[in-house]
Design a protein around this nucleic acid. Sequence first.
DNA 1: GCTTCACATGTACCTTGGTACATGTCCCTA
DNA 2: TAGGGACATGTACCAAGGTACATGTGAAGC
Lengths: 173, 173
Amino acid sequence: MSLRYGLLGLLAEGPASGYDLARRFEAVLGAVWPAQQPKIYAELNRLAAEGLIEIDSEGPRRRKAYRITDEGLAAVRGWLTSGEVDHTLRIQSVLRSAFFWLMEPDELRAHLERERAHFAREAEWYRQYAAAKDRGDFGDSPQTRSLRVAAEAGHRLYQALADWADWTLDTRE
Amino acid sequence: MSLRYGLLGLLAEGPASGYDLARRFEAVLGAVWPAQQPKIYAELNRLAAEGLIEIDSEGPRRRKAYRITDEGLAAVRGWLTSGEVDHTLRIQSVLRSAFFWLMEPDELRAHLERERAHFAREAEWYRQYAAAKDRGDFGDSPQTRSLRVAAEAGHRLYQALADWADWTLDTRE
DNA sequence: GCTTCACATGTACCTTGGTACATGTCCCTA
DNA sequence: TAGGGACATGTACCAAGGTACATGTGAAGC
């Protein structure tokens, strides 16, 4: 259950509405965790019912602002250092790579040429993302600084796939 | 829906029972995708109902052996080259890194020392996994060879996290 | 004053994965 | 020959994420 901790973590920076959180989730955590707007509203209601957040104010345009409670802060802090972490990669590109042998040589060649470009693009995207974070394009929030490592991790992962595609193409020609 | 393609991909190598597939899924794809035994049986029945696999034989001990059909092969091949791939990392260690700033300096220091060891262990695990694949410890099935790239990708990802933990600890002392 | 559109919050339903537990089968050994 | 245990297949339910669609609110432009 990562959505809830993502929301609590963002709220730890200061009060925000569901709508704000949806945009910030996308901008700040989009590269690491996806979140659909409807699920955000649902989760906020659940968190409020459990007392981990509370309504800070009700502004104009039906706008509610949520604030994290002490219990909420304790919950997200506990999660940060809590035990067992799943080490499976769960990345579709990686899983698919296990079955490339099913393709005919010509088909594989064509596919890998596309994939090489794709992986290189992903690697570059994460590199740019890291550079933008370094420049402070997303503001200089604490998450933004912390996520620098996520960008680097993504870059290295996709670079590994791109290198492998290169290697496979080279040894086949 | 990756479980189904994982199963189809494994069955592309040859007929197998649900029990076999559960063990092979764990051994071959365990580092990339998790699969619970009950879900495997459920998915096999669904695949059979859709005609993507069929029962090859019913052996002793209630043992059923499934065989992939031409439709099944076409489905998994189509999946290999099909469009949109999600580029989010969805790795808990990475998401958590966004909120480390919530910890007190002393707490962060202690946590990062544990994490550094953990990341280094993960990186090493993937390195060993790659080495074992190179030696052919898991047999020399086509997936095993293909998954060499997954091991490398996992290694690089966790190495990035370990490097970052080192860097953070160094610049703080 | 009416329309339009971006802002803002939801409801409903579906798919997928996670987990606890039940059952059947057959070999091996005391 | 009785029973323990590995092999083998499921049922049932729950948790979480994905997606389509409905609704309310208010400012800006005509």
